[in-house]
Amino acid sequence: MVAHADPDPHRDAAEPCRACRGLANSFIRGLERTEHEGFGGGNTAWEEEKLSKYQHSETRLLEVLEGVCAPSDFTCHQLLERSEEHVEQWWFHERQQHPDFFQWLCVDRLMLCCPPGTYGPDCRPCAGGPRQPCSGNGQCDGDGTRRGTGLCVCSPGYGGPFCAECGDGYYEASRNKSHLVCAECYQACGRCTGPEDSSCLRCKRGWVLHEHRCIDIDECGTEMAHCRANQYCVNTEGSYECRDCSTACIGCMGAGPARCKKCNKGYWRDGAKCLDVDECASAEEPVCTGVQEVCENTEGSYRCVCAQGHIRRDGQCVEDKPPDAPEKGFFDDVTDDEVVVLQQMFFGVMICALATLAAKGDMVFTAIFIGAVAAMAGYWLSDRSDRVLDGFMKGR
């Protein structure tokens, strides 16, 4: 399996050191992969004697370089082309004196990276020193790269310029010369001496300190709460919420229609409560004047709907029934089987007529023709013709 450098060109473009580190790591994996390989010829002893050992050969170097970059990794290929002479120099001349390929290529030659614990164009020490940047409790901005500010970004719970202090809401659980452990205070404490609710030194916003305890402030009972006109305030731990008044209210002091300051349109006050007005029952004149319209009360209003058995069509209420069906034609109820039988009977009549004409018996022809027509008419008009025909067709 061929090892490749990091194939994310967008990330590498933003961080040149990361791209170089990926190339160097892929190159080292290629060396490990070819560690025990040879030229593959029939006379290895002769090849090693005449062509130098495979371990230090140009052949091995080329095999490693072929697998360093993924085919689609443009950034890696571009960086490899830029540093190819440096790689060859390290392989043939610097390898023994400088075994750390990443340090030699990315830090010393291409100057894309810095040693750990340093940052910026000149590889200056990070805040807190290069041995333990940010006291081990955070990240140095730009650590190991030619970029950044060198300032500390502290881990949660830690603070100060070197992350050597406990942050807000945390206290020192243990400390020695090289190590600090910060633990979380009671939830209301901004600063504290321990985990108990009675060990607060300062409170978070929304609480007030009283005898080393943080007491929740009721913002709803003070002017600290700011809710919109048709909302009411609900106190929460350390804060408050604004919730919408009932639809029955114009302004309210709490939840429900019994806490309204004024009743909304469509409601009337009954003691302390705002109740819905039934416009359909209270109106002196009908409120729905359309034909076959009736009034239906809704919360705070009403609506006009069609009376039972009616639907609204083109803005008017009409009787809910299917549209009139067109009158049936004379042949609409004829089934396929009936058509077949009629065709057979018609064919038979025609044969009889032709046979009679051939015999030149006009009276006979007329009698037979009239009889056939009568039989067809009788079949056609009979209510039970389907059952008779079915038995006839099945030979019953």
Rank of each mutant, 00 (worst) to 15 (best):
V153Y: 09
A19R: 14
F39E: 03
K53I: 13
V373K: 11
T366L: 11
P161R: 14
S301N: 06
Y186T: 09
D362E: 07
D332F: 12
R146D: 08
P257R: 08
D390C: 13
P161D: 13
G238T: 02
K262A: 12
G159M: 04
E184P: 11
C163Q: 05
L79P: 03
D278S: 13
T75N: 05
G378S: 01
Q139T: 13
K262V: 12
S239A: 08
A355Y: 10
N230K: 05
E296P: 04
Q316C: 09
C69Y: 14
M350I: 05
K261F: 08
G238K: 02
E88P: 00
S385A: 14
C200G: 04
R228I: 08
D12H: 08
G67N: 13
P121T: 13
H36G: 01
C220L: 06
K204G: 11
L105C: 07
Q89K: 06
C288S: 13
E172V: 10
A272V: 11
R396H: 15
C306D: 03
L389H: 07
G144P: 01
I217H: 09
E35G: 08
G169Y: 09
E63T: 00
G129M: 10
D216E: 07
F392T: 04
G117V: 01
R259S: 13
G160N: 07
K204I: 07
A359P: 06
I311A: 15
L80G: 01
N297Q: 08
E49Y: 00
F330E: 14
P99E: 07
V388R: 15
K328V: 13
S26F: 00
L112A: 06
L23R: 06
K321G: 06
Q89S: 02
G194Q: 12
L209W: 03
Y379R: 14
R312C: 03
V388A: 06
E299T: 10
V234P: 08
I351R: 10
Y267M: 01
W268K: 09
A258K: 03
V340P: 08
G142A: 03
G159L: 01
D320V: 01
R18K: 15
L180D: 11
A272Y: 15
Y170I: 00
E85C: 02
A173I: 12
R82S: 08
C252V: 01
R18S: 04
M1H: 04
Y240M: 01
T59S: 01
L209S: 02
D100S: 03
V68F: 00
Y186A: 03
A164N: 09
Y158I: 10
W90Y: 03
L342D: 15
G348E: 11
P286H: 05
C17A: 10
C126I: 07
R33F: 00
G42C: 02
I28L: 05
R312S: 06
V364H: 11
F330M: 15
N176W: 04
V349I: 04
E223G: 12
A183V: 07
L209P: 10
N43L: 12
G300F: 06
Q187I: 12
H93E: 10
S52P: 00
N25S: 14
V153Q: 15
D276N: 07
